[in-house]
Design a protein around this nucleic acid. Structure first.
Length: 398
DNA sequence: TCTGGGGTCCTAGGACCC
DNA sequence: TCTGGGGTCCTAGGACCC
């Protein structure tokens, strides 16, 4: 008996943050910023903020995602720059996912604005393209923004298909279409081929996905290592047997970082920044009932070089003060105390839901103070700067 | 002209053990 | 005095994704 063909949809919101902001602004009577050169960024007044999403007219005049806002403004002084609103994006995302889920419960959310659905179990009496078209039209009619739907016999092909012409389109990329639709594409277009891999491949004359598909795994191994080589080779040939994962995986690490508008170089500034990221990370751990066994910090210098240090902690913890002290020790290890720092970050990994075994007899007497401090922080969240300064002072007293 | 923030996975080398 | 091979854990760094 012939195996049933897999049918996977990949649904991708077109210029997600920009479309979502456009919908939000139109509710209060603004013009549709999708129709003019416009971008979404972090804080537009910060000279170091970059573009998170660009409208199609903006892309047409050469403005790219991830480029500095100041640079884009030079290209286009009339550019509309809007600050992103994460709470709004989360709401848009949830409603978008709910519509997709109606078409198949076998759904994997791939990011805030993309998901895969496995349509294989459907009793196909109609063309998948018609179903996909209904889905995309329903999103547009209900939520006011457009999506692309890619249809393929596996996740890789569905995802590649959704990248074809945008916006508001449905495309197929079946196995038998790989040669015609995927092989002529630049190798950079293949999922998992980034800037560095592109350079390596092109140095060896591999320019298109078809070139990549025709090479032996052995020859690719010398370029990118064994594991990655076999994956690239499979993908370039349109093969991918990974399932649509419906389970949301648990976080493996939590981190926060901060880039300064002007580089910092004093112990005081560094300690304050470290305190801020430690508060954010530890708070998020407690909210998700996580404990860490490994704390790491990193510093990015002016020249963008990064130095990182990590250390395993004796007892799993989510207490801000303990994490902060680990981080301070690590920073002392990697920073000379004066070199200007562009960005600082703190992360925790080796997460578990098990707290340390309590040995109350030997416990640091400060522990009660630390726990109380965290409890207060979680209550107030200390989101605004003043509250956090007070919290910082409170901790320093100890 | 000046480059964010939050993740995942892989690799390579060193330490240490048998 | 010179020296194997395998396994595991830890650390640093690099590549990719959105």
């Amino acid at each position: 008996m012939a195996r049933r063909r897999r049918v996977i949809f990949h649904i991708d919101v077109n210029s997600a943050f920009l479309s979502w902001t456009a919908v939000q602004l139109m509710q209060s009577g603004h013009q549709d910023i999708r129709l003019v050169p416009s971008v979404v960024s972090g804080d537009p007044s910060d000279r170091r903020s970059i573009i998170t999403a660009a409208s199609i007219p903006a892309k047409k005049i050469g403005i790219k995602t991830a480029e500095p806002v100041t640079m884009a403004l030079r290209k286009c002084p009339d550019l509309v720059v809007v600050k992103g609103d994460w709470d709004w994006y989360r709401r848009c995302s949830e409603e978008f996912i709910e519509i997709c889920r109606k078409y198949s419960p076998v759904l994997q959310q791939f990011s805030i604005d993309e998901c895969f659905i496995d349509m294989s179990l459907r009793n196909w009496g109609e063309d998948p393209v018609d179903v996909a078209t209904r889905l995309k039209d329903e999103v547009k009619a209900t939520l006011g923004f457009t999506v692309n739907v890619g249809i393929g016999s596996n996740k890789l092909l569905a995802k590649m298909a959704s990248e074809f012409e945008k916006p508001d389109k449905v495309h197929t990329l079946w196995e038998e279409e790989v040669q015609e639709k995927m092989w002529p594409l630049d190798v950079r277009e293949l999922l998992w081929v980034g800037k560095k891999t592109e350079e390596k491949l092109k140095m060896y004359g591999i320019r298109t996905i078809g070139d990549l598909a025709s090479r032996s795994v052995g020859s690719l191994t010398r370029l990118v290592g064994k594991k990655f080589a076999s994956q690239l080779h499979e993908n370039a040939n349109g093969r991918d047997d990974s399932p649509v994962e419906t389970e949301v995986p648990e976080a493996k690490s939590i981190s926060a970082e901060r880039t300064f508008s002007n580089d910092i170089g004093t112990e005081k500034d560094v300690d304050r920044a470290l305190f801020n990221v430690a508060c954010i990370v530890a708070h998020r751990m407690r909210r998700a009932d996580f404990y860490t066994s490994c704390v790491s910090v990193f510093i990015k210098y002016r020249d963008f070089s990064v130095v990182q240090r990590q250390h395993q902690v004796a007892q799993p913890t989510n207490i801000t003060a303990i994490i902060l002290n680990e981080a301070r020790a690590l920073i002392r290890d990697i920073w000379d105390g004066e070199s200007p720092i562009r960005q600082i970050g703190l992360g925790v990994s080796k997460l578990s839901h098990e707290s340390a075994v309590q040995m109350s007899l030997f416990e640091d007497p400060k522990m009660d103070f630390y726990r109380e401090w965290d409890r207060k922080y979680d209550e107030e969240k200390s989101q605004n700067e003043d509250a956090r300064t007070l919290a910082y002072e409170r901790m320093k007293q100890q």
